[in-house]
Amino acid sequence: MTTIDTSTLATSTGTTSSDTNSVISSDFETFLTMLTAQMENQDPLNPVDSTDYATQLATFSSVEQQVLTNDLLSDLTGMFATSSMSELANWVGNEVRVSAAAYYGGTNSVTVAAEPDSAADSAELVVYDSTGTEVDRLSIDTNAALIEWEGMSEGSYSFAVLSYQDGVQINAETADVYVAVTEVRSADDGVALVLESGDVVAATDVTALRDPSYG
Rank of each mutant, 00 (worst) to 15 (best):
A172Y: 07
E173M: 06
E196S: 15
A202G: 15
V206Q: 04
L45T: 14
T36C: 03
D205P: 04
I24R: 03
E150P: 04
T174P: 04
T11K: 14
G14Y: 05
S156P: 01
T207N: 06
P47H: 09
E134I: 05
N108K: 13
S139L: 09
D43T: 01
T51L: 13
L72G: 06
V194D: 12
L76V: 08
T30W: 11
A89G: 08
V48E: 07
E95W: 01
A144Y: 03
L68F: 01
T77Y: 12
V48D: 06
P44V: 08
Y53R: 05
V161S: 01
S158Y: 11
G155F: 07
A89H: 00
P116G: 05
D166K: 12
S86L: 09
A58G: 11
L162C: 08
Q169H: 11
D129R: 07
S18V: 15
L138M: 13
G78D: 09
E154Y: 05
S62Y: 07
V181L: 02
D117A: 10
A202C: 09
A10E: 03
V184N: 00
V112Q: 10
A37K: 10
D117M: 06
L57P: 00
V135D: 05
A114E: 02
R185M: 14
E173H: 01
S26E: 12
A100S: 15
T174G: 06
D205M: 04
V112N: 08
D189P: 00
S122I: 03
L88V: 05
E183A: 14
T51V: 15
W91L: 12
N171L: 09
P47F: 06
V184R: 01
V96W: 02
Q38E: 07
S83M: 12
S86H: 09
P212M: 06
R210Q: 09
A172F: 06
L193W: 03
T142L: 00
D27A: 08
V201I: 13
Y178D: 00
